[in-house]
Design a protein around this nucleic acid. Structure first.
Lengths: 224, 224
DNA sequence: TTAAAAATGATAGTATTACTTTCTAAATGA
DNA sequence: TCATTTAGAAAGTAATACTATCATTTTTAA
């Protein structure tokens, strides 16, 4: 993919949009690497500043705090996946096939597509699986939600829910099914890697193949 | 319920078991209240010490850090639920009915049972829904897992998985179904309360009733 | 009953975190 | 080229996440 994409993310996420400057993209790219390396709790703006040969002050000009940076990365991921699902399910012959394609992308997109130079999508996906829920399990969730910070996730969930509704208009839980597909994809992968007794995915096999199959079975049974 | 229960939780969770002293039970009970009030990120041992008219030093004699305290509370909840499911599904006529009873308990136990004087189960449940995932999304997950800190959750998931296997021995994902029931119960409730576009549960209705119905439909379709 | 042991409190101290402020220098662009 | 934007440098602060030491109170067991 040669086209470089810029996503429009909620304004209140940042003080200055890191996608608009070279420094900003360095910030984003390295924050993904450092969060992966240290875990979100061990990650600090000080350490990130050192890593990119800069200062805390400069980072604070982009983000109010590390929580909003994490949320920015998640939103970026959600927008990116949303864009891919939109493009890749267009012109497919039936809703069933579109749903199958969407599930394939939820599991595999980060390995098959690279849209940007500065963010490593494979590592970003690791961060989303490992730290993602922390971006929306926060004490001031309601005020952040009011500021529109979770629109990206909502739109992503709604895109897949809309396909679900086409597949089976009588199904009573399209949003729940959609959000559960996204949540399951992350949690079951995390369990397979770290708490294997909580899942039937087997680490020795190709997790992506198994996970995709599992989500397909799951969706089929719910709608079939 | 007049019987006071004491749960045996993994030893490495604590330095001194808070269930063994009066001070410890005060610590536990108030930590639930304070985490609910401030959110886990805003919660500190200093603030807890002030709340129970004590000192940081004393709290540190029980727990190495606040993460382990949160995990302790989660384990407590998992053990408590595990115990209830065991007792309450015993002697039921069929696996189907036992699974239905288990789902009912996942959703409602905290409102229907009170086993201890010092922990408010309803608020503990709020904390588990809000902060629970943080207790196992941590950078040193593998070493903590090695220390057996997640046995309670594994046993809980396996208890329900065992029932699933009795209901439908050919079903290929009993553990995944079980862990997904627990995860869904928390996430869908959280979404209904804070990010309603991510779920079909409607806040105006009785969330518990709706959630139980939803999980039943979900399990039925998976196994039916 | 008393002496030992266990549990808690009081005080102090440290490194790190999570910022904020102010002022300067370099790059950019109209 | 002059104004504006952008980044760096340095310093400072309140709070966090602990640790150490010593004194006091409470419990327990001989």
């Amino acid at each position: 993919m040669a086209i470089q994409l810029k996503f429009s993310l909620p304004e209140k996420l940042y003080l200055k949009d890191p996608q608009t400057t070279k420094y900003g993209s360095k910030l984003l790219g390295n924050s993904v690497l450092l969060i992966d390396e240290l875990g979100f709790e061990g990650f600090t703006f000080k350490k990130l500043a050192t890593k990119i040969d800069s200062t805390e002050t400069s980072i604070y000009r982009y983000f109010e705090n590390k929580h909003l940076l994490l949320l920015y990365l998640n939103c970026w991921y959600w927008e990116w996946l949303n864009y891919l699902i939109e493009v890749e399910t267009k012109n497919l012959p039936s809703p069933q096939v579109r749903l199958e394609r969407a599930i394939h992308l939820i599991v595999n997109a980060h390995h098959e597509f690279t849209l940007t130079a500065y963010v490593n999508e494979v590592i970003l996906h690791k961060v989303v699986v490992m730290e993602g829920t922390k971006s929306y399990h926060i004490h001031n969730i309601d005020s952040e939600n009011k500021d529109g910070l979770f629109l990206c996730y909502k739109e992503l969930v709604e895109r897949v829910a809309a396909i679900v509704e086409l597949v089976q208009p009588d199904f009573e839980y399209p949003r729940t099914l959609s959000s559960t597909l996204f949540e399951m994809a992350n949690h079951q992968l995390y369990f397979a890697r770290h708490l294997p007794r909580l899942t039937d995915l087997k680490r020795k096999n190709d997790l992506k193949v198994e996970l995709e199959k599992m989500l397909l079975v799951f969706a089929e049974k719910m709608l079939g």
